[in-house]
């Protein structure tokens, strides 16, 4: 509408905050995640049993939910509730660290590609095109094996079945989508007048990155960060589900391993083994997705709302 309505001026940050808070799903998501993180951080107090500890003397396997095992027990009598806490802990760690590393790498590579252009840019974009077009699961599995087979990378990647290996693997994948976003931002910003103005008055490239590029792309980067967290958590579960995830050394576990165990429990009707880990996974993914969506709404000034 060309008769734009004059609305009271508010600082962009304040408006972003208000838009975020008006997203009901995100508020619930933040609430749920906070509770989860607290629960997991306080696992010595919140978990009722050790990760490998049986709830009682045999017969203790496949117990349905009851007083001494709130969410039932698994095939060797371990408490599902406590194992869920340990599993969520591993999954959150994987999600957080691989997202942070891949966003960092992505920003770096994307910014350089956008600013330098030329060959480097072309090659980077071809690589990302290739990887993003290919079925993700296939690439992930092949790259996992490949990465594990390269012995001189061991000091960085750690053992094939370690959590560190998974984080490195996801970081190698995760940077690509972030790099695309950042590159796009850089290219768009390069065209904008205030960058030209800054250049004209002799601002250094690093100054432009720090003062203009970063503040302008912080929104999309935050959004990418949240979605990489979900992506990493779900990918870990997928890998673990098919037995390619981090191995449960000394009974350690992750959400993926727990969901994977449910595969065997289904046909015998031990529903708790399937329902609770699945529910935990979906709740975490949903919360983070909602937060990401609200961040996108909040940081994208172009609101698509009726009038």
């Amino acid at each position: 509408m060309n008769d734009d309505v004059v609305v009271p001026a508010k600082s962009p940050r304040r408006m972003a905050y208000e838009r975020f808070v008006s997203h009901r799903g995100a508020v619930v998501g933040v609430f749920v995640l906070t509770i989860l993180v607290v629960f997991v951080a306080l696992s010595p107090f919140t978990a009722r049993y050790g990760v490998n500890e049986a709830v009682q003397a045999p017969p203790n396997y496949f117990l349905s939910p009851r007083a001494n095992a709130w969410l039932g027990t698994d095939d060797i009598g371990r408490d599902l509730y406590s194992r869920l806490i340990y599993g969520v802990r591993v999954s959150l760690v994987i999600g957080f660290f691989s997202a942070v590393i891949s966003v960092f790498l992505g920003c770096l590579i994307g910014a350089v590609a956008g600013f330098r252009g030329g060959m480097f840019d072309d090659i980077i974009m071809r690589i990302t095109d290739l990887f993003l077009a290919f079925p993700f699961l296939v690439t992930l599995l092949v790259m996992r094996n490949m990465l594990g087979a390269i012995t001189w990378l061991r000091p960085i990647t750690g053992d094939l079945s370690s959590v560190r290996f998974i984080i490195v693997l996801f970081a190698i994948f995760g940077w690509m989508s972030v790099a695309r976003i950042v590159r796009g931002q850089v290219l768009a910003l390069k065209e904008r007048e205030f960058i030209e103005a800054a250049r004209a008055v002799g601002a250094s490239r690093w100054y432009i990155v720090r003062r203009h590029l970063l503040p302008n792309s912080i929104g999309p980067i935050m959004v990418a960060l949240t979605f990489s967290v979900v992506g990493a958590i779900l990918s870990e579960s997928t890998l673990a589900f098919f037995g390619y995830g981090p191995q449960a050394g000394a009974g350690a576990t992750s959400l993926g391993i727990l969901v994977g165990q449910a595969k065997g429990a289904v046909n015998t009707g031990f529903w708790w083994l399937a329902v609770f880990p699945c529910l935990a996974l979906v709740i975490i993914a949903l919360s983070i997705n909602f937060i990401g969506d609200a961040l996108r709404d909040a940081t994208d000034p172009r609101m698509v709302k009726d009038a």
């Binding site: 509408m1 060309n2 008769d3 734009d4 309505v5 004059v6």
Partner: peptide, 10 residues
């Protein structure tokens, strides 16, 4: 702009 001239006729 914003004076309501388009809005009246819309």
């Amino acid at each position: 702009s914003g004076s309501g001239k388009s809005v009246s006729f819309l």
